[in-house]
């Protein structure tokens, strides 16, 4: 595995594959800011196999696996030839519309990956704004001292393969950008909400209430503050487990609707 040192190397890899076949298939989406963050963290690596370029991203104790391939048959051939280091798990997110992703996830399954979870994307266009007077003083911006407790809070409660738990660095970045809201009781985290704003789009990434505080309406206070902070956004998106009916109905209550985009999470345990 070779370390990726610049965004240019990613472009060169895409170019190599496109020269072989014009078209290409990939699950490596081009978010330059995020990719540059990963490069800075020295967590991106690449392996070239025939007509496929694999990209690995180290995340805590497992790797995300991405591919850039001329087509699916080449991808499955080279996936079979890929040597996976022992004692590490590999996670592949297959993102697309349902009919496009089924074939790919079946191919991964035939190469030893197992289906772990499926997420659906939900979205809403802005309908109304939240007034400052409706906000609760219990909700505040997280501070740098909260970074490690927030990381622990999330890792204890979320599924590490499917729920894209942010690293401590990402949490620190969110704190700097005031995109991490928290509610605390003494020193205990009662609930938190983590989001990203990209232009006029607000991405709700994590929204979690401590099971000991479920009766205190912390969740609703958090999301109200989130909507207030995103009053200038016109599009709101999030990913949710497709079978999590409780969460889906909660999001629908706030105006989110299901999209056709889904993320099938495949895991190879070594």
């Amino acid at each position: 595995m070779l370390a990726i040192r610049s965004y240019k190397e990613i472009s060169e890899n895409i170019e190599k594959i496109k020269k072989l076949n014009t078209r290409f298939v990939t699950n490596f989406f081009l978010n330059e800011t995020k990719i540059n963050q990963w490069i800075e963290d020295e967590s991106l690596f690449t392996v070239e196999k025939g007509k496929v370029i694999f990209i690995f991203r180290k995340h805590t104790d497992f790797f995300y696996l991405y591919y850039i391939s001329t087509d699916l048959s080449e991808l499955f051939i080279e996936l079979n030839n890929l040597e996976f280091p022992e004692h590490l798990d590999f996670v592949a997110d297959i993102v697309g519309k349902a009919d496009e992703t089924n074939q790919i996830s079946n191919g991964f399954q035939s190469q030893g990956f197992i289906h772990h979870e499926t997420l659906k994307r939900m979205f809403m266009m802005k309908t109304n704004t939240v007034d400052e007077k409706d906000l609760s003083s219990e909700i505040e911006f997280a501070t740098q001292a909260d970074a490690k407790p927030v990381f622990d809070f999330l890792t204890q409660r979320l599924d590490k393969y499917s729920e894209q738990i942010p690293s401590i660095k990402e949490i620190q970045f969110a704190i700097d950008n005031q995109t991490l809201l928290i509610s605390k009781n003494n020193n205990e985290i009662a609930g938190l909400l983590y989001f990203e704003k990209i232009g006029f789009t607000a991405h709700l990434k994590e929204w979690l209430v401590n099971e000991n505080y479920r009766e205190n309406k912390i969740g609703s206070k958090l999301i109200k503050t989130f909507f207030y902070l995103c009053n200038n956004c016109n599009r709101f998106i999030l990913w949710v487990k497709e079978n999590n009916d409780n969460a889906i109905s909660k999001y629908e209550h706030y105006g989110y609707k299901k999209e056709s985009l889904k993320d099938t999470i495949m895991v190879k345990h070594n």
Binding site: Y7, K8, S11, E12, N13, I14, E15, K16, I17, K18, K19, T22, R23, T26, F29, L30, N31, E32, K34, V95, K197, I198, G199, F200, T201, C233, R235, L261
Partner: peptide
């Protein structure tokens, strides 16, 4: 402005390639 996200860029490259019968240079995909 958030009108296109990272998922959309890949679809856009494919759609432009197909509709204009070209192959956008990988180095230009930024």
């Amino acid at each position: 402005d958030g009108l296109l996200d990272s998922f959309d860029l890949i679809s856009l490259v494919s759609e432009l390639d197909e509709n204009f019968s070209i192959s956008i240079d990988g180095m230009d995909i930024n």
